[in-house]
Simulated assay, not measured.
Amino acid sequence: MTDPAGHPFPVRGEVAAFHGDLYQARAAVGLWPYVELLPEPGRPAPADLAPREAADGSVGYPVAPERLEAWYTVQWTFRWHDELFECTAATPTTLSGNYLGSDEHFAKEHLKRRVIGYRGVFPRHEITELAEHREDLLQPLRALVRRLAEADHFRPQTYAVHHGQTYPAAAEADASGLIALTTGHDRPEDLGADPRDPSAEHFLAAPEQLDAWYRTHWTFRWQGGPFDAIGTVDGRIKGVYTGGSWGFADTWQLTRETGPDAVHTRYTVEVDLDGVTDLEQHRTDLLANQ
């Protein structure tokens, strides 16, 4: 992707294609899995999208990933005196870049020292092999959205099976020993409607009327420590630390939270799925105790 003068644009960052047009882009913080389009100043806003102001004051246009034709990272490289550089800035007459080679003598003679490595600014007419490199972000995002949906975002859940049909269910029987099933539009003829539910989507079943009643939950390990999964946040799995080491919680700076009972404290982490190991689903039979 270049501007009308043939300069790399952007020199590095993210680009999304929407309705055939290319925009600088970024993940929409707090609105996962949406992507925000970032039109340049003076460019018309993307059609049919509403603006949203970020915490830093910048304005983006969130769009669902299924509406994008592409979303990818961009990085440009070039050669100067046959040595390879990563492009960091571009003007009509020059390109700036970080040195990717290993010739220390060349670097000390021609380049400026960085904290780590070397950099330089070069006339455009001396540049060769200017190349754009892309890494796809859209297909991995879509795959992650599907995976999280299939796993119900790794949330603990309770289900009941009635006449071969599986429904979300209460985790405990009520005072009468009946189990509430969320049946949606189904109306099981042999079950009574829950009088406490104005939506009429809950029906009550006795344990003997069910083929199965069970609870599921997921566990995983991160940095060697054990966690119970409790859902996802912005596409990352969230877990409660179940180990007994305060040193582990402190070393890895786990987040201290008040538990659901508003009394006990728990320590949690949010991490990318590819950063966890031993991700496993567990099933507990609840009918066995009835």
Rank of each mutant, 00 (worst) to 15 (best):
W218S: 01
V233T: 14
I237Y: 00
G235H: 02
R221E: 13
S199F: 07
G239Q: 11
G192W: 12
G184D: 15
E201D: 12
I230A: 04
D194E: 09
G225I: 07
D190G: 06
Q209L: 05
A200C: 10
D228G: 09
R187Q: 07
R187H: 05
R196E: 14
D190P: 03
T182E: 11
T182K: 13
D194S: 05
R215G: 04
P188A: 12
G239T: 00
D228P: 02
H217K: 06
G239I: 00
G231S: 11
G244A: 05
G239V: 01
H202F: 03
W218G: 01
P226M: 08
R196C: 04
R236W: 02
S199P: 08
D211Y: 07
T219H: 04
F220D: 01
G224F: 04
G239M: 00
D211M: 04
G235R: 00
F220Q: 00
W213L: 04
G235Q: 09
A212V: 10
A206S: 13
G243N: 07
W213H: 13
G192T: 14
G235A: 04
S199V: 05
Q223Y: 03
R196A: 12
H185T: 13
R196F: 05
I230L: 09
V233I: 08
Y241P: 06
Q209W: 05
D186E: 10
G231A: 07
L210N: 02
F220P: 00
R187K: 12
D186L: 08
E201F: 10
H185Y: 06
P226C: 06
D234G: 01
A206M: 12
G231Y: 00
D194K: 06
G244F: 12
A205F: 03
G244N: 11
P198D: 13
R236I: 00
L204R: 06
I237R: 00
Q209A: 06
G184E: 13
A205L: 07
V233C: 03
T219M: 05
P195A: 12
W213R: 05
T216S: 08
A212Q: 14
Y241D: 05
S199W: 14
P207S: 13
A193N: 05
G225Q: 15
A229N: 11
L204Y: 07
W213I: 02
I230P: 01
T216Q: 15
I237M: 13
R196Y: 05
G224C: 07
H185G: 08
T216A: 02
P188G: 10
K238C: 11
D194W: 09
P207C: 05
T219L: 09
D197E: 15
T219R: 09
A229P: 10
L210G: 02
T183V: 14
V240A: 01
G243R: 08
D186M: 10
R215Q: 15
F220C: 04
A205P: 08
A193Q: 12
K238I: 06
W218R: 04
T219F: 01
T219P: 01
F203S: 06
A205M: 08
R215H: 15
P207Y: 04
A229L: 13
P226H: 11
P207G: 12
A229Y: 00
D234K: 00
D190Y: 10
